[in-house]
Design a protein around this nucleic acid. Sequence first.
RNA 1: GGCGGCGUGGCCGAGUGGUUUAGGCAGGGGCCUGCAAAGCCCCGUACAGCGGUUCGAUUCCGCUCGCCGCCUCCA
Length: 465
Amino acid sequence: MLRLHDTATGTVRPFELRDPGRVSMYVCGPTVYEVPHLGHGRFTLVFDVLRRYLTFTGLQVRHVSNVTDIDDRIIQRAAREGRTEPEVAAEYEEKWWEAMDALEVLRPTVVPHATGYIPGMVALVADLVARGSAYETEDGVYLQVDTVDGYGLLARQPLESLRAGARVEASELKRSPLDFALWKKAKPGEPTWSSPWGEGRPGWHTECVVMSLHLLGDGFDLHGGGQDLIFPHHENERAQAVAEGRPFARHWMHNGWVTVEGEKMSKSLQNFTTIADLLAGGDPRAYRLLVLRSHYRRPIEVTPETIATAERGLARLDALARRLSLVDPLAAGVVVRDQAIAAAPDGVEEDSVTRFCEHMDDDLDTSAATAVVFDLVNRAHAAADDGDGSTARRLGGTVALLCGAVGLRLRGELEAPDERTQRLVDDRDAARRERDFARADALRDELVAAGWTVEDGPDGTVVHR
RNA sequence: GGCGGCGUGGCCGAGUGGUUUAGGCAGGGGCCUGCAAAGCCCCGUACAGCGGUUCGAUUCCGCUCGCCGCCUCCA
């Protein structure tokens, strides 16, 4: 049974599903006005790992993640660049999926776009007004926060304390600085939709509550995102649902952020790296492994050094995969535990699978779970050294299974050397047979300089990169 | 001001009231190798500080210090 930290209670507690066997999860997706950076990479990887693991254990997962395609920043960018908002949104959404695909983050089951749900948002806002939870002003419609029971649950602060700390300038139009916009009345030149309050557009918090409830239903299982969404975004989503009298997310999960030299990666600090930049420099799997090696609620430092360390870990996995000719666990798609165990050609070590799952079930302790995998790697190599091929293959098969559970691809197959490289390899083998080591070493230097790793095995030289 | 998180061996990073280790990376020694690479074996007596509880605390409690974050858009 999976236990997960729940932001609403501040405790790790059982992840109890609304419908047995089926998981409904909503993860706040991107606002498409800029290219994704490593912070986006982390949250998508964290929730991808969760989703894959849930699937691994045999659950059916419905994963909804939105695209916010109308927003102040999109409008600003469009105005600045002399383009339309849909053009800007389309461009950055495309870049988003490119990055997700490269990271091997599974596409959500459903990807709602905010602009596709405007009528539902208008209806929600109208109902909140009718119920007396919201009020209209000159510039929009606001939720009156002090009408909502338990406002501050996710922030884990009472209303008074939030109010005292509010740094927003109190607008004369709002009854409280904490009241937030459900509907923004149009300013000249902005894209608009019709509503009982005139032309305008929905507030961000309204988008997500409407889409999540529409696509997953009342009392869906999990709502997630980065820790910076806890307040006000998720608090405000929840407030609307509460004001409507509708059960909202049963469980709230938030991941820690990416830091750079100890500070949060963010646009304002100008310390962000885009996913595209990361991928240009190396193996996309390294970021996944880096994420797996820490706990999802902890900050992670993502730098060239930490990525390089993860790449060495990856090299260790790949070396085993090559040695034992392990099949990439993801070649056939998402891995489901019982099916994969049944299909494993050499069996699996079920003890390790059990331990792996115990760690994962403990609030996704991926770091400890990953340690189980590396321990298997070690033992598989040792067994192979001892000439115990069947044990080695069984342990190796378990490595593949568990890597697959968290979406980590293994690269066992070698990149085929090009013709020129193969000639160098052949020449080197010949030189070694003739014990012309000076020539063999020179050829090796040449191969290494071209980026190949040279390994002399019992069957001759093998190169890979 | 309010609220929260964190502080583990050279680095990253789990975990635990006490006899036995996370794991990875880096480093040292050995094996293997023509030399390497990959791999294997061996090697580190760490838990911010100060008190308290306890037979015993890195692990529980309190305080102190330090770092980070949220209370504004933010993954």
